[in-house]
């Protein structure tokens, strides 16, 4: 038992890597200053390797900003805010936003009220 606990503890420590709990980086001259070192390049544990995998995928993508995705532009122009690209439109609010905690029961009633949308609620 002791051995397992020791080794699993290692994983956690490896993850924390002896760095301070709070890493602070202040960028004064905008985002163009490259201050952070690549924390993943030398990573030999699987968490760092998976992270490096995602960052290298990001770098290879033709588009790297969400609002430039042509299918995002299309869903706003055709469906969420017809004719324009308006984030937080009424339809976007209805389909893409939610409520939490004690506000949920009333929210469910609201969603089930007739006229909320043309679909049925058979599965709900």
């Amino acid at each position: 038992m002791h051995i397992f606990a020791e080794k699993a503890g290692m994983t956690r420590r490896q993850f924390l890597k002896g760095s301070g709990l709070l890493a602070v980086t202040v960028i004064v001259s905008g985002i163009f200053a490259k201050i952070g070192i690549d924390a993943f390049a030398a990573g030999d544990n699987y968490i760092a390797q998976r992270a490096a995998g995602l960052y290298s995928l990001d770098e290879k993508m033709a588009l790297r900003k969400s609002h430039e995705n042509p299918e995002i532009i299309e869903i706003y122009r055709e469906f969420l805010s017809p004719g324009e690209e308006k984030y937080l439109s009424a339809k976007a609010h209805h389909l893409l936003h939610t409520k939490y905690g004690k506000n949920i029961p009333a929210f469910i009633e609201e969603l089930k009220a007739p006229g909320q949308n043309e679909n049925s609620h058979e599965a709900a």
Binding site: F15, G20, A23, T25, V26, I27, G36, D38
Partner: peptide, 13 residues
């Protein structure tokens, strides 16, 4: 780069 890393709590401006 400022928001990247594996420390449990990080901050940036």
């Amino acid at each position: 780069q400022a928001v990247r890393g594996l420390d449990p709590v990080r901050e940036a401006v």
